[in-house]
Design a protein around this nucleic acid. Sequence first.
DNA 1: CGTGCGTATGACAACGTTGTCCAGGCTCTA
DNA 2: TAGAGCCTGGACAACGTTGTCATACGCACG
Lengths: 356, 356
Amino acid sequence: MPETARRADRPADRSDRLSGTRYGNRPTMKDVAARAGVGLKTVSRVVNGEPGVTPDTERRVQEAIEALGFRRNDSARVLRKGRTASIGLVLEDLADPFYGPLSRAVEEVARAHGALLINGSSAEDPDREQELALALCARRVDGLVVIPAGDDHRYLEPEIKAGVATVFVDRPAGRIDADVVLSDNFGGARDGVAHLIAHGHRRIGFIGDMPRIHTAAERLRGYRAAMEDAGIPVEDSWMSLGVTDPERVRRAAEAMLSGPEPVTAIFTGNNRVTVTVIRVLAERSRPVALVGFDDIELADLLQPGVTVVAQDAAALGRTAAERLFRQLDGSLVGPERIELPTRLVTRGSGELPPAG
Amino acid sequence: MPETARRADRPADRSDRLSGTRYGNRPTMKDVAARAGVGLKTVSRVVNGEPGVTPDTERRVQEAIEALGFRRNDSARVLRKGRTASIGLVLEDLADPFYGPLSRAVEEVARAHGALLINGSSAEDPDREQELALALCARRVDGLVVIPAGDDHRYLEPEIKAGVATVFVDRPAGRIDADVVLSDNFGGARDGVAHLIAHGHRRIGFIGDMPRIHTAAERLRGYRAAMEDAGIPVEDSWMSLGVTDPERVRRAAEAMLSGPEPVTAIFTGNNRVTVTVIRVLAERSRPVALVGFDDIELADLLQPGVTVVAQDAAALGRTAAERLFRQLDGSLVGPERIELPTRLVTRGSGELPPAG
DNA sequence: CGTGCGTATGACAACGTTGTCCAGGCTCTA
DNA sequence: TAGAGCCTGGACAACGTTGTCATACGCACG
């Protein structure tokens, strides 16, 4: 059945919204032009605020637009103009409180540049990250902000070569040379652990994510560095890696808190781990010091307040997005790695002296 | 200067990325066809997995696609096909922890239907909401999930008429008839306040947002209803409306906790207010009961644990998105209002007996 | 009064894809 | 072996917009 016939026929078909292939007979510039009795291009001029239209003509066109409920089809516009004024954000999990502010910051920068934000969660799955990133490229986003889930981003090479501005955040890109914005994970962790050492701790536990994740590896490295700087040999039983789900974190924490020589302090490698460890410690009578990487909400209201190494998620997002738009300006020379400082926030749990 | 000339010229121009109007010479199906020595449509068939291509031809095409780094231009596809396989989400603030899970839930449903999610924050500004929603319509999203900031949505009428599926979440649409998915704000608040009354409280304070916001009004109504059911006359000094920024919440709370007849319990109208009130109460020696609307993270770890009326943000998002895709299926009859139940989570703060 | 110029307007092609339709070559059967 | 029918592949138009270019008109000036 030809398209045109379908348009006119069967207006009462109840599944019209879907089966009507086109956008339910949306008016086009041609329709507006016909109604206003002007040429197609004149409508285009009015819609885009281009000069060279008499006030009288403009008024007629505006009336027609109003009457028909016309709205410019940006798909066609994009096809013609080449740029979409939209950027993509691939993150790990929108529901994670860390990414809310980050995402919001990216959005604000995009908005300031007149661009929309399209985003999706990779759920920490490299394949899904790739699928998502390429889908965004197919939509011809002008740029891409990616929080890597995988560690090989060569699949983006053709896209970058084709002009898609790309910035990686939170974790570095894998096997390609690209802009990266990250927190000083190493320095932050080192400072946090040094803080515990400064308060007299020597047996300090570390619970973090798999070292295959860059941030986790860096934080572990910071832990080791601080211990080494203090001349404290690290025992294997103090470290628990690749552990994030609450049950395993709980077991790991309990393990290092038991035995003849339990740890007197714990450094946690991310917010989810921190929360679980707080629960474990709350059930114990003997006080254990705690410093966590990433801030958590209400950390100051707990007893004791939770000392953390805080990252500025919003600053990460903002910096990345700004860098992306500067790529689009063409005002950047080459890929760069930007590291943002972390901040140690002391609230009590990190200042507890060693017990036992 | 003609487009084609520009393409080829000045490859070394350092602002190439921007000034090159087109997508940096991206290969098209035509290019792939030429390289593979086949017709344009054959490439289209291969890309879309349509039948009618010999394995040998398909292989040649695939090789050409690989070699050129071709990626289908979805803008053109959308223009031709009419549907974009993307939906828009207009929410209040991505950084608000309430909207993270909601947004994520919408995304999951979209993904299950093969659609992408484009979103933006209205920052509680009706004009910005409208601007955003219409921008999404210009992109020809198939559907729109809106968390209203304003109370007049007639501007969406032409869009809805043109076939844009639309669902409002968390707050009802203003002045148009549309699908709405919300929490039982009235019932939840009433139950929460009744809970306090059941524990012996009579002088119960209420701190909430401006009643012009639907959810705030409903929660206030729930508060009043519970009090009335218990035969307790409400004094004006117990209620503080339109107060959300921390400083003013603090003053409001302190005011109702002072004087000759202070309240012995407080019901807070949303999570931000709850958090501030927790801080105020933490500084006081005399225990004051507290029930908050919206759950907050780590609420169970505080002393006492915070009793809340919890909404299921993810369920709101999921329900709305599913309803949206059912609109697109054409399997729905008319607009409907769906109310999801809330859940009272007792953790201690709401079970404190009246003091003084 | 004619020429020249500037401004308002419209005709037309192109953007990259997909749907329609037709041609040519093949197989299968009578 | 010829004709019918099927399968593969390609030519072409269309989607709605914008950039380019040509035209027509009005006005000032010589």
